[in-house]
Simulated assay, not measured.
Amino acid sequence: MIESTSIRYFRIVTECGSIKQAAAALRIAPSAISRQMQGLEEELSVKLFERGARGMNLTDAGHVLYRYAIENRDQLDGLRSEVEAFDSQRRGQVKIATVEGMLASFLPNFFVDLSGAYPGISMSVTAVGSRDVAEMVGQNEVDLGLIFGRAPRRDLVELARMRQSVQLIVAPDHPLAGKISCGMKDLAGLRVVVPDPSFGIRQEIDKACAQANVRLQICNETNSLAFAQTIVSRTELATFLPRDTAMPSIQAGTLVGVPLRDKRLEATQVTLVQLAARNASPSTRLVAEMLVARMRDNED
């Protein structure tokens, strides 16, 4: 498929109409082109040009070879475009806005794998609440967003969803720590530290409590899930988090996750979104495809 020197010279001589003009276009000596044309005719055992006063005209065999030369060049151009696109896919910066819960294990694990496979791609990660994630994606400030729940804007495309059931999170010595699961009625009057209303988790908890007619005793609100976990690990307060968010602390033995028997909280999910009108870069498309695959693999 790679264009040989003799075929390239033949194509340019044909398009220029003479060896002299082709030599000027290629900035080489006419004798070099003449030798290539003579060698090509000897190799194919055919006459390619009729040489006349007005220049060089293709023979029938020359027309056949010229069609081949053009097709070969087009194939080479297509190959070059594919190779360049593949190379650009492996380089660049991808900006991601995410809810804080994805920073505990999901995104760090993803980043480690991404940097190992594609060291030329860097990720810029901003942690904000779900509403702000959607706003940043919608305003074209970031390439991709991970929100809690469904996409709240019509101009966002949902690329993938990953179920992240919300659990009750308590210290190991909390009275509810030993339960296999809890219903919403079991939480009436529970002293809690909760994410502020900008968090999708908080919105789902409020809806679940309202539906069950349960009132929590909110002692603290915060915009940091890490802060909520620290407070819970040191006090009798409880909080609510997707299990994956609290997994490092659960594995370390400083927190316990108790499943909640509530259809709404069992079905909560994280959604990968992108602006519908955005023309994504090759590296962004690659990262999006990898995130979609990882989210499918990490379904509860």
Rank of each mutant, 00 (worst) to 15 (best):
D297H: 13
S45R: 14
V125G: 00
I19D: 02
A226Y: 04
F49H: 07
M295E: 07
I250N: 06
D196V: 10
A25G: 00
Q89R: 14
D143C: 11
A97Y: 02
A177N: 08
E42D: 14
E158C: 02
I218L: 03
D244A: 15
N140G: 13
A134E: 07
N72E: 12
V142E: 04
C209G: 02
R215M: 05
L144F: 03
D132Y: 11
E266C: 09
E41N: 01
A212D: 02
S105Y: 03
E289K: 14
Y9F: 08
L168A: 07
I33V: 03
P282C: 05
A212I: 01
Q21W: 03
P119C: 14
E82Y: 02
E100W: 09
D196F: 09
Q269I: 08
E84V: 06
M102Q: 04
A134W: 05
M295S: 10
M56K: 04
E221D: 05
F106A: 06
S122N: 12
P172I: 07
Q139R: 13
Q164Y: 05
L286S: 05
R202P: 05
L286E: 05
G39S: 10
A288M: 06
L286F: 07
V194P: 01
G200E: 10
G62Y: 04
R154C: 01
L272W: 10
P172C: 10
S6C: 00
G178F: 05
R154G: 15
V46E: 14
A171T: 07
V192S: 06
V137Y: 05
L65N: 00
S283I: 03
R261L: 15
H63P: 00
A85Q: 12
R8F: 02
T59I: 03
F106K: 00
N223H: 09
P175M: 03
P195N: 09
T126L: 12
D87G: 02
L114G: 09
V287A: 10
H63R: 13
Y68F: 02
D87E: 13
R73A: 13
D132T: 15
S115R: 15
G17I: 08
T271Q: 11
S105T: 10
D300F: 13
H174W: 10
N220R: 12
K207L: 14
K95Q: 08
Q211R: 14
I218C: 08
A127N: 04
A61Y: 09
R131W: 09
N57S: 12
T245R: 01
M295F: 12
V157R: 02
T268C: 14
E141W: 12
R215I: 04
G183P: 00
T14M: 01
R153M: 12
E221F: 11
A293I: 05
I2S: 12
R51K: 15
K179E: 14
I147C: 10
R261Q: 15
G145V: 04
V273T: 11
L65T: 00
S88R: 15
F111D: 08
E42F: 02
G189Y: 02
Q274C: 08
I19K: 07
F227S: 06
E3L: 14
P119Y: 13
D186H: 02
S281M: 13
F86Y: 12
